[in-house]
Design a protein around this nucleic acid. Structure first.
Length: 547
RNA sequence: GGACCCGUGGCGCAGCCUGGAUAGCGCGACAGCCUUCUAAGCUGUAUGUCGGGGGUUCAAAUCCCUCCGGGUCCA
């Protein structure tokens, strides 16, 4: 409630955080500011509150009906009709909750960036899901956003995969995981294979034609497969950047030269070029960043620096990385700092674990995103069969609901937390779930389509449910803003859930069609469905036609 | 050995940034609610040392210290 905050600030000169009293009979908003002021003035909090109430009452705007003291709390009863009218009017506008902070600006988000060795598993997909929300929100804030995927096509894993796929005439996406698991097993039994892997990688790095071709065949197959899955899942990329590009162009040398100018590059006892990162408070015993091998060829870190140099051309620049890359990112950030380049904004996320332990692509101990998607669709279809869903849209709706269930179950959890993967939990379709959100909007839209009345903003004596809905809706812009500061999708997920919950309470208790206040309630329902759909859109959840 | 993140009813989570009134929500359990806008919904009941301990404060799930457990990284 910005007006209220502004009013308090104007009269008392204090910035306050508003809270909601435990029950509506105690007011609509509340502040405990008296405690802090009383300390300065040497009065008891109650006395201070009493004085402040008097002071505030003198300049009370029309929006506020009553200001009362409850113990040391100062509580405000506001003109609910006016607030509802105002909120609904705003929420009916297109783009409610957006800001123009991105207008005319570009933004770059790098996410997913999985090793192109197999079908993406659920753990790494968390990266893409979080990244995709960032992309969507930045677009909502009017940035011109490009989503980038860095393809790590020049690593040991890929060399192994290439070696494993060598004797197969045809390789397809679905067999990659098996090939990868198999070659890993072989390598464990026979260390000689490791030599071969590095030989192969070396040839690739040198740009040996036939080897490059071999790599491209495997990586291409993999990326096409991953792209298809992510596309189906509603996650798209504008650019696929290949790490190998930085192998063969001179950008790596440029970065290396810049780093050498800082006087911090030295050759370590293994003959590798290393960047000294003393003074950056990195949690390592010897704070260095290894740039090259002893033969002078670039390591991943150096190539990534070159990549970051390119990315930094876009001012607004965000990257999503697993918690295993926390230190690595600090090294990147420090290194970039040394050459006067700003590091991207960073979001880290923790891993998704299986009940029996960590996921491991190497051992094939994974839940693949595509299996998860398929299973979800199967389960949702079973439920849909008992409902009157039109045949034409059946498959589409099943996907929309299934993917919403998956996305929501992962996005609602703070990225800092580990998620223990559980089929039942993740595919829950009741209560705190994606389908619950969708169902709420579908219900709202049904009301809108059935009514013949015109919308009205002439709110009078609004009920508690309507007021609560509006109060919640008025928080939406703040939630979006908050997200733009910390990139935690659970913030939006929680918000949307709370709003949907309030709507369902309203729905159960308040008749719209045929009521005396049909016009006003239509406006309210329309506003709520707007905000819900917008919020869900930011999470990448689609609203089905029916369900 | 060092650094970072997490620990909230049986289970899964929110709240912690910015300390405030009886700690919210979902699953599961139990009891209700479909002749009215879709019951993937709503209402109610039971279940909590907010990991343990200490500190700061009028006030701590929230801030600080420490220990334990899980995750991650470095050595």
């Amino acid at each position: 409630m910005k007006e209220l905050k502004d009013f308090i600030k104007k009269v008392l000169g204090e910035e306050v955080w508003l809270e909601t009293p435990p029950n509506p009979s105690m007011g609509d908003y509340s502040t405990i500011i008296a405690f802090h002021i009383s300390k300065k003035k040497g009065r008891t909090p109650k006395e201070t509150a009493e004085r402040l109430v008097k002071k505030l009452n003198k300049k009370k705007p029309r929006m506020i009906k009553e200001i009362k003291r409850f113990g040391p709390y100062i509580n405000f009863f506001i003109d609910r009709d006016a607030l509802v009218r105002k909120t609904v009017r705003q929420a009916l506008k297109k783009g409610y909750g957006s800001m123009n902070i991105g207008k005319g600006k570009k933004a770059l988000v790098e996410h997913a960036s999985i090793n192109p060795n197999a079908s993406p598993h659920v753990g790494r997909s968390r990266n893409a899901m979080i990244g995709d929300v960032i992309v969507r929100v930045l677009k909502f804030l009017n940035y011109k956003v490009n989503a980038h995927y860095l393809v790590n096509d020049a690593g040991k894993q890929i060399a192994m995969l290439v070696l494993g796929a060598r004797n197969r005439k045809k390789i397809d996406f679905d067999s990659l995981l098996d090939i990868y698991v198999e070659i890993n097993k072989k390598l464990e039994l026979d260390p000689e294979i490791e030599k071969k892997v590095f030989e192969l990688l070396n040839k690739f790095e040198k740009g040996h034609g036939p080897t490059v071709k071999e790599f491209n065949r495997v990586v291409g197959t993999c990326i096409r497969g991953q792209k298809k899955i992510f596309n189906d899942f509603g996650i798209g990329y504008d650019y696929y950047d290949y790490e190998s590009q930085y192998l063969w162009n001179r950008k790596v040398d440029v970065v290396l030269k810049k780093l050498e100018k800082t006087g911090r590059v030295f050759v370590d006892e293994n003959g590798r070029k290393v960047l000294d990162l003393k003074g950056f408070d990195l949690p390592m015993r010897t704070p260095v960043f290894v740039l090259t091998r002893e033969d002078g060829t670039s390591l991943y870190g150096l190539r990534d620096l070159a990549y970051n140099l390119d990315k930094a051309k876009t001012k607004k620049n965000v990257v999503v990385l697993g918690e295993d890359h926390k230190l690595y990112f600090q090294q990147i950030k420090a290194s970039l700092g040394l050459i006067g380049v700003e590091a991207p904004e960073i979001v880290h996320y923790s891993f998704i674990l299986l009940k029996e332990g960590k996921m491991s692509t190497r051992r094939g101990k994974v839940v693949l995103l595509e299996d998860f998607m398929k299973e979800a669709v199967t389960r949702i279809k079973k439920i849909m069969v008992g409902r009157k869903i039109s045949k034409k849209d059946f498959d589409k709706i099943a996907k929309q609901v299934a993917y919403a269930a998956i996305k929501y179950s992962l996005l609602k959890v703070s990225p800092d937390k580990n998620v223990v993967f559980d089929w039942e939990q993740a595919l829950n379709m009741e209560g705190d779930s994606g389908p619950y959100l969708q169902y709420s909007v579908v219900r709202a839209k049904k009301i809108l389509s059935k009514s013949r009345k015109k919308r009205s903003l002439n709110f009078k004596a609004v009920d508690d449910n309507s007021f609560n809905l509006c109060k919640k809706m008025s928080e939406f812009p703040g939630v979006v803003k908050k997200f733009s500061e910390n990139y935690k999708p659970n913030l939006i997920a929680n918000y949307v859930l709370e709003l949907a919950k309030l709507f369902n309470e309203f729905y159960a208790q308040t008749r719209v069609i045929g009521s005396e206040q049909e016009g006003q309630r239509l406006a309210l329902v329309k506003a709520v469905s707007n905000v819900l759909a917008t919020g869900m859109g930011l999470l990448g959840l689609e609203v089905p036609k029916e369900m």
